[in-house]
Amino acid sequence: MTYINMIIESPLLRCIAVLILAPTIGTLLSGFDRKFTARLQGRVGPSFWQPVYDILKLFGKQQILVHRTQLAYAILHLFFMMLTLVLLVLGQDLLMILFCQAFSALCLVIASMSVRSPYSWIGSQRKILQMLAYEPTLILLILAVYLQNNSFLGFKVLERDTPLIYSMPLMFISLLFVIAIEFEKSPFDVASSHHAHQEIVKGTTLEFSGPFLGLIEVAHAYEMAMFFGLMVAFWHTSIIMGIVLALIGFILVLIMDNICARLTSWWMVRFMWTIPLTLSLANLIWLWR
């Protein structure tokens, strides 16, 4: 126990621990996702560790590239995703964390726009639309947190007595939609889906192969862990309840993924700017002081 306390108390160790743990959590989550989907479809499915195998395999493959710049942006994408997580663990300003996350996504967009591949191009165009769709909702979420804590700092959330979910249930619902977009789940998986034969093949990640695809997958694992962590933070007073809540949220997203077809990107923007945004606004109104 003393070791755990030591890790929790020292910011540096905490960051290192999270940087190691987060991809594990993220890959486990996507392993859970694949298993869960397989069970819903009435089959056995791969093992829980399948995403880990996939990533490790990718790192052992030949480094095929289209050009140099692509690699630089892929690395920036990963690094800024890691930074986002580090800032979150350090309890930093939430709005700035959001901007770091946006920049990370932007790096992926630029990387996939820079190759002259039509599929990847369309994928990245849709990825920007996705960012356009969820960004206002996330900003409002953070503002709602401010209204309760009088602070933008992340660690102030942990000092509260009551869980956030009591006061921000609607925000949690709109966060689920944001998460569905971030995890590329139907009906929002317009930019790059996990299914093979969609109209733009694989969208944003199309031109990355081998270890570079591995980098992007690791970044995605970080992202999953981060958003899972955000869901847990909605019930921070009890870590078990938090994880239960986050898992419920995650399973809801997975069920939506399995019962929905992919819809158009414009539908996505219209939807996100109407229902989740208005839900968040409605939630903001009753938090107003």
Binding site: R43, P46, Y53, A196
Partner: peptide
């Protein structure tokens, strides 16, 4: 259920 072997059907050679 080819996925139990880890088989994924991907859309592009890369």
């Amino acid at each position: 259920d080819a996925e139990r072997f880890g088989v994924l059907h991907v859309g592009n050679p890369k």
